[in-house]
């Protein structure tokens, strides 16, 4: 069973490196930091905000800040 991330937790999370707002990719279960170019995984509804567990983003995945 997959859990959803606690909404309150989602609200207060930021990128651990850049302290910028994260994008929540519900299908991929990832929290994306465009500035740090990293995607932090979510397993069983638990965000894993460790840099060595994060996936480096490819250039095309990065959304430029509007």
């Amino acid at each position: 069973m997959t859990h959803d991330v606690d909404p309150k937790l989602l609200e207060i999370l930021v990128c651990p490196l850049t302290h910028t707002t994260l994008r929540y990719d519900r299908t991929a279960q990832e929290l994306i930091s465009d500035k740090a170019k990293l995607a932090f995984p979510i397993r069983d509804g638990i965000p894993i905000m460790l840099v060595d567990e994060a996936r480096p983003l490819e250039d095309k995945e990065i959304k430029k800040a509007r």
Partner: peptide
């Protein structure tokens, strides 16, 4: 994950290092 308490129905768990705390200011 192994040191977090067992999951209940509404998990509010976070894995992070407090030295790089991923929390918004004033939150």
């Amino acid at each position: 994950q192994k040191t977090l308490p067992a999951q209940n129905a509404h998990p509010a768990h976070l894995i992070c290092d407090e030295e790089t705390l991923p929390l918004r200011m004033n939150s």
